[in-house]
Amino acid sequence: MDITSFAWIAWLVLILIFVIIEMLTLDFVFLMIAVGSVGGLLSGLVGTPWWGQLIVAAVLSVLLLFFIRPPLLRLLKRGGDPAKSNVAALIGMGGLVVSTVSRTGGQVKLAVGETWTARLSQPTPLVVSGAATELVPGEHVVVVAIEGATAVVVPAPVSTGTDGITERSAS
């Protein structure tokens, strides 16, 4: 009895292993390899020698990985939640200075109600001299970055209210 006559058992075991790994990773890589292995199994059932079965499985797996997996991943992620979360949600958020904020420290209360340690952003070449060196309690700020547990802030832009009074916006 020839060992190649039992190759179908090896293919079934490989397919089962790849499907189990895929269920643990959920990345479609092992699913594509499992489907490629099905191609190897089918080619063996029609009488292809073992080395031909391996070639069919390998080529089919590579084709699936490069041409089927990317669209599947795009479809899977297409319906994702577009809302920003965590640190990304804080960038651009307005706040109010609670404790004097300078380039070294201070505290702000963000629009979501959280009080954060804050520091004033370093001036950029676009900022003309006269940029604030510290902000006093009650001033409005906007978060431009988060560095660890510190919100990096800049003074909120000045806008004219509906009643003609100039005020800082809290975004």
Rank of each mutant, 00 (worst) to 15 (best):
L90S: 06
P70Q: 13
W50K: 00
D27I: 00
R168P: 00
G40E: 12
P155D: 11
I3H: 11
V59D: 03
K109M: 06
I165H: 13
I15T: 00
R119P: 03
T117I: 07
L135Y: 07
P82Q: 06
P71Q: 05
V128T: 15
P49I: 00
V127W: 14
I20G: 04
S37T: 03
R69A: 01
A58K: 02
L24T: 07
A111H: 06
V46K: 03
D163M: 11
G161W: 10
R119S: 08
I21D: 01
A88H: 14
E134G: 04
P82W: 03
Q107D: 01
A7E: 12
T133V: 11
V152I: 11
T100N: 05
V98I: 09
P125C: 05
Q122H: 12
S5I: 08
I91T: 00
N86D: 15
V144Y: 05
F18K: 04
L110W: 00
V152P: 04
I91M: 05
Q107L: 10
L42M: 13
E22L: 10
I91W: 02
G39Q: 08
A132C: 01
T162Y: 10
N86R: 15
T25Y: 09
M93V: 12
A88N: 09
K77T: 09
G79E: 13
K84E: 09
L24N: 07
D2K: 14
W8T: 02
T150Q: 02
G52H: 13
A118H: 14
G95S: 04
A149I: 02
L31D: 06
A118F: 08
F67K: 08
V46S: 08
I68N: 02
I146R: 06
T166W: 12
W8E: 01
H140T: 14
A118E: 08
E139C: 01
A151K: 12
W116T: 07
L96M: 14
K77F: 12
G36M: 07
S43C: 12
P155M: 08
Q122R: 12
I91V: 10
L135F: 14
F28E: 01
L41A: 07
E134Q: 12
G113H: 07
V154L: 15
P123V: 08
V142P: 04
I68E: 02
V59H: 03
D2R: 02
L64F: 00
N86A: 15
W50D: 06
A89R: 15
F67M: 11
V62I: 14
L45W: 14
P123Y: 05
G40W: 11
A118Y: 06
T48W: 00
T25I: 01
V98S: 09
T133F: 03
R168N: 12
A132D: 14
H140L: 06
L31I: 08
L14S: 08
T100L: 01
P49N: 11
I146K: 06
Q107M: 13
K77C: 05
L54H: 09
L14D: 02
I21M: 10
V87T: 14
V153N: 05
A170R: 14
Q53T: 09
S5H: 02
V108W: 03
L72K: 10
G47I: 01
T124V: 09
